[in-house]
């Protein structure tokens, strides 16, 4: 990690702590002004805090294991050369591996495009990276239930693939237009 990114993260942490402090003060004030609301607020907060603490450490361990064991090179190796249905499925699976925040996927996407990977697969890869992460699905399962999680996952996969193919077609069309008008 470069020092610039580290500085940014520190800033983000400080911002979170300031928001938390302000929110705590606001909550205390509200409870002082409206003491009858205290039970509702603290019960709901407490319930969700316990539920989060029962799964979050485990989720973080799973994320840590993936981060160390799945090398980023592996993703480039597979996604660079495959196309068709196989390429789409690979883009989905490789995107879904919990390997870090979205911003580290952009330079990977650029490198893959330069190497000749299909645009549709890159869009699918980026979108899967953003919203189909394996640990995310676990937390969704815990809080929203199996039916909700599976249905949203299936719909997301379908529409992300449709979107990837559509964007590729749009970009191809506008590329052709551009080359034709510049040729005249």
């Amino acid at each position: 990690m470069n020092p610039d990114q580290k500085k940014k993260e520190k800033k983000g942490m400080r911002r979170d702590l300031i928001i938390l402090l302000l929110l705590l003060i606001a909550t205390l004030l509200i409870i002082i002004v409206l003491p009858e609301k205290e039970k509702g607020v603290s019960d709901a907060s407490w319930d969700f805090l316990i539920e989060m603490m029962l799964i979050l450490p485990a989720i973080m361990v799973i994320l840590g294991l993936f981060a160390v064991w799945v090398p980023k090179k592996l993703i480039g190796k597979y996604l660079g050369h495959t196309s068709g249905i196989k390429g789409i499925i690979l883009a989905l699976i490789l995107g879904a591996l919990p390997t870090g925040p979205l911003y580290i996927a952009f330079p990977m996407a650029v490198a893959l495009l330069a190497k000749g990977a299909k645009r549709s697969n890159i869009i699918i890869f980026l979108s899967a990276w953003a919203c189909i992460k394996i640990p995310q699905e676990m937390v969704e399962l815990r809080f929203l239930g199996l039916e909700f999680m599976l249905l949203r996952l299936a719909l997301t996969i379908i529409f992300v693939v449709v979107m990837g193919v559509t964007i590729e077609k749009i970009m191809e069309l506008s590329d052709k237009k551009a080359s034709r008008s510049s040729g005249v």
Partner: peptide, 18 residues
């Protein structure tokens, strides 16, 4: 992630409680 977790938890408490 902890500060953000606490922000969300407090936010949920305020939302459902108020």
């Amino acid at each position: 992630m902890l500060p953000m977790v606490l922000i969300i938890v407090l936010g949920i408490g305020l939302l459902l409680g108020l």
